[in-house]
């Protein structure tokens, strides 16, 4: 079932979205990514990984109410 989740944008993804966060309604990360790409077509030019509740995701995942999904472009620390 689709639930409300919070999406955080960082780095280049934040520049494309023009905001730091927003809410989406999605059942899983695959459908969430589809919605994000539909809303921001330019996001397809940003390479990114996802973190679910601060943990880097290695595969698609189901979403629960109030989950926090972060859109993480390649890290640039150091």
């Amino acid at each position: 079932m689709a639930t409300q989740v919070k999406v955080l944008y960082f780095g280049a993804a934040q520049q494309v979205a023009g905001k730091a966060s927003e809410d989406f309604t999605a059942e899983d990360t695959a459908s969430l990514c589809e919605q994000i790409l539909e809303r921001y077509p330019a996001m397809s030019r940003v390479t990114f990984r996802l973190a679910l509740n601060r943990n880097l995701l290695k595969e698609e995942s189901l979403l629960k109410e109030n989950d926090i999904i972060a859109i993480l472009p390649p890290f640039e620390g150091g």
């Binding site: 960082f10 472009p73 890290f75 620390g77 150091g78």
Partner: peptide, 13 residues
């Protein structure tokens, strides 16, 4: 430690 910072720390510039 330095290599892991580059790989794992979610920081952007």
């Amino acid at each position: 430690t330095l290599e892991m910072v580059k790989e794992r720390l979610p920081v952007w510039k």
